[in-house]
């Protein structure tokens, strides 16, 4: 796999279970799709300190059912614009997971890493295999990597170029 499959950064925040997309970008802000604006209101009511703690390249840890609720794509856009480079959660809601990948925010599922790692830890993550190395605590964890086709889609530059490439391959077979 190519370069984007390896990510390194510090854990800058840790959220709990069942964080829904309504709290990420509340309904009254949905008339914008502007990343900078969405980043500025990300988690505004739930956790006003989030935007202080999160910096570009930060890794976000979360609990179970992360991103449940509304299918609003503004939620992962806001997190990404707020600086989040990667989310490691115990479990992701399915629509959020697809939306995040589609807008270029990788997600890794690892119950152990999401439980054990802490704010400040320096992590190195292989998106394909799901291997998470904690350089601060000298440990490693196995997570669910990003499925091949989603990673390929990610690397192809999004849904569209990927569809074209795959259909071309099918024809050639």
């Amino acid at each position: 796999m190519s370069k984007i499959a390896l990510i390194r950064g510090n854990v800058l925040d840790k959220l709990g279970d069942h964080i829904d997309t309504d709290v990420m970008t509340p309904g009254k802000y949905l008339t914008s799709y502007e990343p900078a604006y969405l980043g500025s209101i990300c988690l505004i009511d739930l956790d006003p300190g989030f935007r202080e703690r999160m910096k570009p390249g930060g890794i976000l840890l979360a609990g179970v059912n992360f991103g449940c609720g509304s299918s609003r794509e503004t939620a992962p856009i806001a997190l990404k614009a707020a600086g989040v480079q990667l989310i490691i959660a115990k479990e992701f809601a399915r629509i959020f997971y697809r939306n995040a990948l589609n807008i270029g925010l990788p997600c890794i599922t690892s119950e152990e890493a999401a439980a054990v790692c802490e704010i400040g830890d320096d992590l190195e993550v292989d998106l394909e295999s799901g291997l998470i190395v904690n350089h601060t605590k000298n440990g490693s964890f196995h997570g669910d990597g990003i499925p091949q086709e989603l990673l390929a889609q990610f690397e192809a530059g999004g849904l569209f170029p990927y569809l074209k490439a795959r259909l071309r391959q099918k024809r050639e077979k």
Binding site: S71, R72, N99
Partner: peptide
């Protein structure tokens, strides 16, 4: 199926969607 805007866009343009 409920999806995000990128997938709506994809389906509008192609009448198809990749789904697991």
């Amino acid at each position: 199926l409920g999806v995000g805007t990128s997938e709506v866009y994809h389906a509008l343009a192609t009448s198809c969607l990749w789904v697991r």
